[in-house]
Design a protein around this nucleic acid. Structure first.
Length: 225
DNA sequence: TGCCAGGCCGGGT
DNA sequence: ACCCGGCATGGC
């Protein structure tokens, strides 16, 4: 048995500490896989509280299905999701996504998730308004596919701790995690949610390191990735 | 009052 | 390959 690389031990240490401090985060909070996908679009650069209002508005009208959102007018959709911000842009993105679902998979999420992951990911990225993070959130949180989701918090936490340089592309940072961790959806799910949690609590633009469960890891080393 | 939040696109270097 | 302006609401 060969020893684990240092980076793997480091990343596992971060995870262990975060899980001990905060416990399971139970992501993604939603009533259905489709709701997760819509939430992934709505939460782009937006506080989750505002997304919850938009989601609630859609569900109150009984429209949280691919076909219902395909039928509804742009005007009504935009009005329902107004609280989540960028509401005209996001209405167009949701429209593009449900059109994609219906044209490619007849609106059947099971058909979508039966595609090979690489193919599906690039198809999602070809939908206007779905970028890397949104595509991977859909794959991981709605589809249980083991892809690691990168976001602003992930970058901030890791670069503050000098685990990564401050400027790294999404794909390289994603590979950094996936090259050093077992490909398990439950692990990636919890890890990303925990990074968001510690980011909100401590790794804000103005750092609040007092009481941060990761404080012990701060050091001057900067591994190449 | 201003800054921030679970990004992405299009156009320009 | 980056870098930038635009998109918008609600909380602190």
């Amino acid at each position: 048995m060969k020893e684990k690389p240092r980076t793997t031990r480091q990343l596992e240490g971060y995870y262990r500490r975060l899980l001990k401090a905060y416990g399971p985060q139970h992501w993604w909070p939603a009533d259905s896989r489709f709701e997760i996908m819509i939430g992934a679009i709505l939460t782009q650069n937006t506080a989750w509280r505002n997304v919850e209002r938009a989601v609630a508005n859609i569900k109150r009208e009984g429209l949280m299905t691919p076909r219902a959102l395909h039928r509804v007018s742009m005007r009504q959709l935009a009005e329902m999701i107004r609280p989540s911000g960028y509401f005209r842009v996001k209405a167009g993105r949701i429209k593009a996504f449900v059109r994609f679902l219906i044209q490619q998979y007849e609106g059947d999420l099971r058909r979508m998730m039966s595609e090979p992951v690489g193919i599906l990911r690039s198809k999602l990225l070809s939908v206007k308004g779905i970028g890397s993070e949104t595509a991977d959130s859909i794959l991981l949180y709605a589809g249980d596919v083991p892809v690691f989701v990168i976001d602003a918090y992930t970058r901030r936490v890791l670069s503050r701790h000098r685990l990564i340089p401050s400027k790294v592309s999404y794909d390289r940072l994603q590979r950094f995690f996936m090259d050093h961790l077992q490909p398990r959806a439950a692990l990636y799910n919890e890890y990303h949610a925990l990074l968001v949690k510690v980011g909100k609590e401590h790794c804000r633009p103005t750092p609040a390191c007092q009481g941060c469960p990761l404080k012990v890891y701060l050091n001057g080393k900067q591994p190449k990735i």
